[in-house]
Design a protein around this nucleic acid. Structure first.
Lengths: 346, 346
DNA sequence: CTGAAAGCGCTTACAG
DNA sequence: CTGAAAGCGCTTACAG
């Protein structure tokens, strides 16, 4: 790359002022007379001068950059939902003139990854960082918050942790589960199975909790045989369902899946076992994945406003960066029922 | 954010050496005796010292950061294919210890956007930049290359432009179009329509060229009525097809669509007009979009190895950054036919 | 092998 | 209102 950009000394010389004044103009200080300001601006524009960011940072300015850290075991680029979340953050930030520095935590050992992430904060590359896919109360994140860095997290239980540099953005799992169970019950289902999610991620246990509450609200028994352990992946949903089908003594009339990816896997396992959805069993998802309307049968599911969720988080982070630490902030994105073709009344 | 990180002066003091020596250790200079190196490393590790990146950049180091610039009119987060390309770059870069600074060019006027992008280079935030979705020979990009910045571009005709700081990654449109036409011809189609793409993007005209060549190779006439103008979007494909259906005097037996998104739109328009695919007309796409295997009928298409395409580009860029300007580099990702259910023999 | 010093390009109290 | 100067935290010739 070239190395011959013009600097503030040169601008100062050309405008016949000091570097101090150039800096005051650049940073929009009030105590510069219009005439001086215009004189300097003309030179700046003529030479298309742009201050060196590193020098500005060294002198104490912000980076106008947000870090985005993805925790993922598999190939992230294959995961449409995560791709969308990433792009959504970038889009929100770009709209506000912020850059996003993205890093995928997948290459190294946990310890080394943690070091790399911490470095990004320590090197002052970023004004704050957003984490997607992290475990609930992940030690690295708690450490960063403890050290005063500004951190945004998705899908975390924040009970009792209300530091001003912690921003949490969740979705309403309890209401979502309630909507789903209510809907199934309204279709006369009472025998309802639940495929659980990753127990380490907050929405895993919370959705389970929501399911239990909703079932209790309808005075419906929960059959232990119908609580299926799982993770959040399509492959996991397939394996869990296949194994479960081999052992279960009586089938439920409906399955509520912790998310849509798992439901896709479950659907495949059910199809392979010759069980028709929704004729023989109803299947309900959670997320409203982009594929859910496209598969056959189109998946009835709980829509999550991920768009709003990431927007809120990114916005709040930028606010905190620009206005200094605010109060602790927590957002809860809405969930709603989307009826398609995978459930039927019995 | 906190402001109390340890610096090299402090490390030097604690290790009983000068800052010069600390720097030599950090940068792995050979002329440091093992004993001194170890002594310094111990202090560095004990205090988890990480050099300030901005200071390093000011002193002439690289940023280990790649810029990623997206040109898009609509909401990028809704475009699954673009999301995948973005994440793919981030993933490749993360694997090599590089960060990716992403910016979406959508918010402002063209002029202002160009300024913001140029700033990113000028501020030395990045060691090089990758552009996705840019027009062929976009002036901003040519300007950046002219000024010596390292630029990677997707889908560009590089004829006669072989600067060492230009890296191009395309896919093989000519072969892809040839494969598609060959396939249709092998199914006895001779009346073949083509929906064209965005004329400003290189793959638009190149695919058209490939189509004409392939038709000529089979001595097939090209009916002007069956060349349909379009862009690269689903909505565009829908509108173009709908309009075309209203005016065309004789239907072809097959439609080759410039990409899969356009084919999805075309399929919708055909369905609405009561024309069955593939019974009444065959439909062939290009890209192998994630949705193509999921729609009904599953779309027969030309698979493009986007994964390889972005990987090559990102890799070559990192090579150029680390080893200095190489020769001009150009990559061409493979294309191959994927047979599904949207074409039939006649 | 190693330290003192210059230099990178800004910002911002400080003094006038 | 504005300039001279200190300071941010590194790296790297230079001299020894």
């Amino acid at each position: 790359m070239k190395n011959t950009e013009i600097n503030s000394t040169e601008i100062a010389r050309l405008a016949g002022v000091s570097r101090s004044t150039v800096s005051r103009v650049i940073n929009n200080y009030p105590n510069v007379p219009t005439k001086t300001r215009e004189k300097v601006m003309q030179v700046i524009e003529k030479y298309q001068y742009v201050p060196n960011l590193s020098a500005q940072i060294m002198a104490g300015k912000r980076t106008r950059t947000i870090g985005l850290f993805l925790k993922s075991t598999g190939l992230v680029s294959n995961d449409m939902l995560t791709n969308m979340l990433i792009t959504r953050v970038i889009e929100s930030a770009s709209l506000r003139g912020y850059y996003v520095l993205t890093h995928i935590m997948r290459t190294k050992t946990d310890e080394e990854e943690a070091r790399i992430v911490k470095e990004t904060f320590q090197q002052r590359r970023i004004d704050g960082g957003i984490f997607i896919g992290a475990a609930n109360h992940e030690p690295l994140i708690e450490e960063l918050i403890g050290e005063g860095y500004l951190v945004g997290i998705v899908d975390q239980n924040s009970l009792g942790r209300t530091e001003s540099n912690r921003i949490v953005s969740n979705f309403d799992n309890i209401t979502g589960m309630r909507l789903g169970v209510d809907y199934l019950v309204s279709m006369n289902h009472r025998k309802i199975a639940f495929i659980k999610g990753d127990p380490l991620r907050w929405s895993g246990p919370e959705k389970y909790e929501g399911f239990m509450q909703a079932m209790a609200a309808h005075y419906l028994p929960v059959n232990g045989e119908w609580i299926i352990p799982g993770d959040f992946s399509e492959e996991g949903g397939y394996r869990a369902t296949k194994e479960w089908l081999g052992t279960v003594s009586e089938l439920p009339t409906a399955i509520f899946s912790v998310n849509d990816s798992v439901a896709f896997g479950a659907l495949r396992a059910l199809n392979e076992a010759g069980i028709q959805v929704p004729e023989q069993i109803s299947l309900l998802g959670f997320d409203d994945h982009v594929l859910s309307s496209r598969i056959n049968p189109a998946l009835t599911t709980i829509h999550v406003d991920f768009y709003e969720m990431m927007e809120n988080l990114t916005d709040a982070m930028i606010q905190s960066i620009e206005k200094g630490p605010q109060q602790f902030q927590k957002f809860i994105a809405k969930t709603s029922l989307v009826v398609r073709d995978s459930c039927r009344a019995i």
